[in-house]
Every structure is written in C-alpha cells, then in structure tokens.
Computed example of a mutant assay.
Amino acid sequence: MQNIAILCSGGDVSGMNPALKHFVEYTLQKNLTPYFVYDGYEGLIDNKIEQASYCDVSGIINRGGTKIGSARSQRFMQKKYRDIAKQNLDTLGIEMLVVLGGDGSFRGLDIFYKETGIKFCGIPATIDNDINATDYSLGVDTALNIIKTSIDAIRDTASSFKRAFVIETMGRDCGYLALVSHLTSGSELCLIPEKEYDLKSFEDDFKKQIKNGRKYFIAIVSEGIKQDSSEIAQWFENKIGMESRVSILGHIQRGGNPTIYDRLMAYKFITHAVDGLLAGRDESVICYTKSGFEFNSIEEVTSKTKELDAELLSYLDKP
C-alpha cells in the first residue's frame, strides 16, 4: 500500500475538519494508508506524523478549525529543516502530500517538491478567497455566513439607537468578504482595497437620506483599506452627523460550524486531490472555477494577484 499524508498550513478555516474526515475515508477506500501531520510544516520538521484511522475523524465533520492543528513555519523556509522533514517522511514511506492552505503554503510546497520529489496536491483553504486561479477557497462560505449573522444582529442595535455601525471584515488585501457581505446584507457603504474611494462623495447623499427618514447606516469595510475603521466612524459623526460605533469581527469569521456548502466542497476538493495524485499529477493545486474543478501549477496560482469578479465590483458604482 502507498502512504499519503495531509497537513493544514496557515490560517485555519471551517471546512478543514470535513476535509480531514473525507481524506481518511477516501484514501482507505483507495487502498492507501493515510497519515496526519500535526501543526503544519512545523509538524513535518518535528516528526508529528501519525497514521490515521476512522476513529480519528469520528464526530469532527461539524467542528470548525482543524483537529490536526495548523501553523506558519519560518523554519520550513530553511533548507536544513526541509531536509529533516524529508527524512521524517522517508522513514514512514510517505511519498504523497495533500496540503490545505494558501499562497505561501503552496510556494513552500513547490520548493519542497523540486528538492525532494515528494508529490503533492494543494487545496485552497483561506477565508480571504484571495488565491488566484480558483473562484472558491475552502472555508469562505462559512465565513460569509458568520458575517451575515453578525451584520443582521448589529442591524438590530443600529436601528434601535439610530447609529451608524462600521463593521470590519477580514481580507488582508482582498475585499471579497466585505464586497459579497455588502451586496447580500443591504448595507449602505462598502469600502475595499480594490476600489478607490473618496468619503466626501458620499456626504450629500447620506445627509439627504437622513432628511428623508433614514435612521441608521451600516458600513462594511475590509481590513485592507487605507483608513482605520475608527476613522470611518469619526467621519460618520463629524460629517454625516450620526453617532457611530465600530465592530471588528476579527477571528470570529474563521470559526463556527461548517456550512453544508463547505462540507460538500471539502468532499470534492479531497476527492479530486487524491485522484489527481494517483493519476500522476505530482505537483499541482486543485482549483474550482465556473468550468468546474481543474488542476493548476504552482506558478499559475502564485504568480498573479487575484482580481475580484468585475460584475460584482461594478455594483459598487450603482446607486
């Protein structure tokens, strides 16, 4: 039997545990021996690698985060530690790796493969949804639903106290979460890194809305914009004339019970990743687009900054 391992790298997302569950079940079905690497690339170096079985994944499909842990490894950037990781895999006879992570994780994999020949398939897993060549990353749907629930709850208070609320989402340099949440929540303002803005251009319209009876505002901003959320709140108070508050959703967006869609996508990502490795795809990332699932090279995935859907962006220009 061939041995295959899975690890999680970078930020955790809801959907990783469903992926781990299907990884064990599907690899055993394919007569492979599955292994878990605990704590990401750090676990590869520290030899935290254990054979997995059905009992290891029982009852985890509904849990957020990742049972096997994750990490961002500075040591893995150094060849001497990658050599140690290779020795640990060789000792266990592991020749294939499935990695749940993002751009940085995949770049590390690319170097590791070229040095060692360890076959791999990357699965995009980041709530930022900022990975080029894939329309969807594992964990995004759960994050969007967490944000939706938060916005709906905050709206209750905003309307009761006649306030403006500035709600900050994650996204680093990608405004996907903020944009989609804006379009699906009916908020009045959305600010993202991909779109230049001038707050002054909103002032006359917002004041007119207040005169016409508007009692509150919801503004959704991405953490990557040029201003702090507190500055946007001050603008509401000083220029619009409405008391304001800031809610930074932070890491709450990463956790929570995985949605049905993320559980299903985890199932599909894992199936394609394992099948690809068995079919001889030794160095790839499995991506999901409107055309379905497709394998891409590391270069295709990491060489370009992801662009938001032009149609979604165009909605910000509409009144």
Score class of each variant (00 low, 15 high):
residue 44 L to N: 14
residue 160 S to V: 04
residue 70 S to D: 07
residue 54 Y to T: 06
residue 152 D to C: 06
residue 217 F to Q: 07
residue 16 M to F: 07
residue 67 K to P: 02
residue 173 D to R: 14
residue 127 I to F: 02
residue 82 R to I: 09
residue 40 G to A: 03
residue 32 L to D: 11
residue 180 V to Y: 11
residue 302 T to H: 03
residue 52 A to G: 04
residue 94 I to Y: 07
residue 168 E to R: 13
residue 283 E to L: 01
residue 106 F to I: 06
residue 151 I to W: 03
residue 192 I to M: 00
residue 103 D to I: 03
residue 81 Y to C: 08
residue 223 E to Q: 07
residue 272 H to R: 12
residue 31 N to P: 01
residue 294 E to V: 12
residue 183 L to K: 02
residue 67 K to W: 00
residue 161 F to S: 13
residue 22 H to N: 15
residue 144 L to K: 13
residue 203 E to Q: 13
residue 288 Y to D: 01
residue 210 I to P: 06
residue 144 L to Y: 13
residue 166 V to C: 09
residue 292 G to N: 08
residue 88 N to Y: 00
residue 212 N to G: 08
residue 252 I to R: 10
residue 87 Q to A: 14
residue 296 N to S: 14
residue 84 I to F: 10
residue 139 G to N: 13
residue 186 G to W: 15
residue 118 I to Y: 13
residue 39 D to P: 01
residue 274 V to C: 07
residue 127 I to Q: 04
residue 204 D to Y: 04
residue 293 F to P: 06
residue 7 L to N: 05
residue 48 K to C: 10
residue 250 G to P: 02
residue 164 A to G: 15
residue 105 S to C: 05
residue 298 I to V: 14
residue 242 M to D: 11
residue 308 L to T: 01
residue 247 S to G: 08
residue 44 L to K: 13
residue 128 D to E: 02
residue 293 F to V: 06
residue 182 H to M: 10
residue 195 K to G: 00
residue 302 T to S: 12
residue 195 K to D: 01
residue 291 S to F: 01
residue 318 K to S: 09
residue 29 Q to M: 05
residue 9 S to G: 12
residue 190 C to R: 08
residue 13 V to G: 05
residue 28 L to P: 03
residue 316 L to K: 05
residue 85 A to F: 01
residue 161 F to I: 11
residue 231 E to C: 07
residue 101 G to W: 01
residue 24 V to R: 10
residue 145 N to S: 02
residue 149 T to E: 15
residue 244 S to I: 00
residue 253 Q to Y: 06
residue 33 T to H: 11
residue 258 P to I: 07
residue 153 A to R: 14
residue 39 D to M: 13
residue 169 T to V: 04
residue 62 N to Y: 14
residue 59 G to R: 12
residue 38 Y to H: 14
residue 209 Q to H: 07
residue 49 I to F: 15
residue 294 E to L: 12
residue 47 N to H: 12
residue 13 V to F: 04
residue 151 I to L: 11
residue 39 D to G: 07
residue 237 E to F: 03
residue 70 S to F: 07
residue 125 A to D: 07
residue 204 D to E: 14
residue 146 I to R: 12
residue 279 A to E: 15
residue 117 G to Y: 02
residue 91 T to G: 09
residue 239 K to W: 03
residue 251 H to R: 05
residue 15 G to M: 04
residue 60 I to V: 09
residue 97 L to F: 08
residue 136 Y to M: 06
residue 313 L to F: 00
residue 55 C to E: 12
residue 120 F to W: 15
residue 312 L to Q: 05
residue 33 T to N: 15
residue 177 L to K: 10
residue 235 W to R: 05
residue 103 D to Q: 11
